[in-house]
């Protein structure tokens, strides 16, 4: 059963450390405060060319939250290609995209295994759709390109284990980062794109402090809010004004269609903000 090509450690199961503060009284100590304006996204650091031997590469880091123990997302992306397709694959008149997203074992609260799990595959699929709309695929017949993203550190709060179910929200932020970093790496690799695609996340949250009314925030950090009702991740081409991928999750009242469009619009707004960082970074790459 165990993969003999890796070092697996002891046969018995190991348990991640359990903290005594996990009890109820600790939860109240955690200040769930968002110190940014609802429309502000976190600062981002984006740099191309971190892996010189790849055709293109980029590194993206989100500013970590003021609260200690909350990490900012750290992503590294490499692009290999255009390269020849494997001999077994059929003729393709355009470029064949393959995306691969993997969390590092030390990226999240729970140690990740080396095999891709379904959520990582899911991220890869979403990323592929987001990028496919941006790439001019028929410039490169008979070729393939590999886009590989390593999530070096996820967007998680180490201290709280209360949010066990919030991984889906973390995935939204991860996807948004993946799209932006892959876009930079593709531009670095010199693969024709119609526009620079960037990701953006918006969420409908409910906070304890201002009870009752849910509000929409950009670039949410799950641990900063009491409850997330719904969120969407948008991949958006600002010049074309096109959405290449939309991922929506949550539980919104079906009656309020306005709320839904507002959420998507906020996601686009977040993506525009992300795009500004992307364009600035690309400008530095050529200069």
């Amino acid at each position: 059963m165990a993969d003999r090509r890796r070092i697996n450690g002891p046969a018995g199961a190991t348990i991640p450390p359990v903290f005594d503060e996990d009890g109820k009284q600790y939860e109240h100590k955690v200040a769930k405060i968002r110190d940014r304006a609802p429309t502000a996204i976190r600062k981002m650091f984006l740099k191309t060319g971190v892996t010189p031997s790849a055709s293109g590469s980029a590194y993206l880091e989100y500013e970590s939250s003021a609260k200690s123990g909350v990490s900012g997302l750290k992503l590294s992306c490499t692009v290999h290609g255009p390269r020849s397709l494997p001999r077994s694959s059929p003729f393709s008149p355009h470029i064949v995209l393959s995306t691969h997203v993997k969390y590092a074992p030390f990226a999240t609260k729970q140690r990740r295994g080396y095999l891709r799990d379904p959520s990582e595959r899911d991220l890869g699929t979403h990323l592929e759709t987001a990028l496919r709309g941006a790439i001019i695929a028929d410039r490169w017949p008979k070729s393939g390109v590999d886009i590989i993203i390593s999530i070096i550190e996820g967007d998680q709060d180490r201290e709280t284990s209360k949010f066990q179910g919030d991984e889906t929200w973390d995935m939204m932020n991860a996807l948004s980062g993946c799209i932006t970093v892959a876009s930079a790496a593709l531009a670095d690799a010199g693969i024709d794109c119609v526009d620079t695609v960037a990701g953006g996340v918006a969420a409908l949250v409910q906070d304890t402090s201002d009870d009752s009314t849910p509000r929409i925030v950009l670039d949410p950090i799950p641990s900063e809010h009491e409850k997330i009702l719904g969120a969407c991740c948008v991949a958006y081409l600002p010049i074309r004004d096109e959405v290449t991928n939309l991922w929506f999750k949550g539980d919104l009242p079906a009656s309020d269609i306005d709320l839904y469009t507002k959420l998507v619009e906020s996601g686009i707004q977040a993506s525009r903000n992300g795009n500004r960082v992307l364009v600035e970074c690309l400008g530095e790459t050529v200069a």
């Binding site: 090509r5 002891p10 892996t51 031997s53 590294s76 490499t78 993997k102 080396y114 590999d146």
Partner: peptide, 25 residues
């Protein structure tokens, strides 16, 4: 004896053209 140190190296991150993911180590 109890195998308390577990080092593993991952190269399949696209760190060079010959190391692409999707294959065993």
């Amino acid at each position: 004896e109890y195998d308390l140190l577990v080092p593993n190296i991952e190269l399949a991150t696209g760190c060079a053209p010959q190391f692409l993911p999707g294959v065993p180590p």
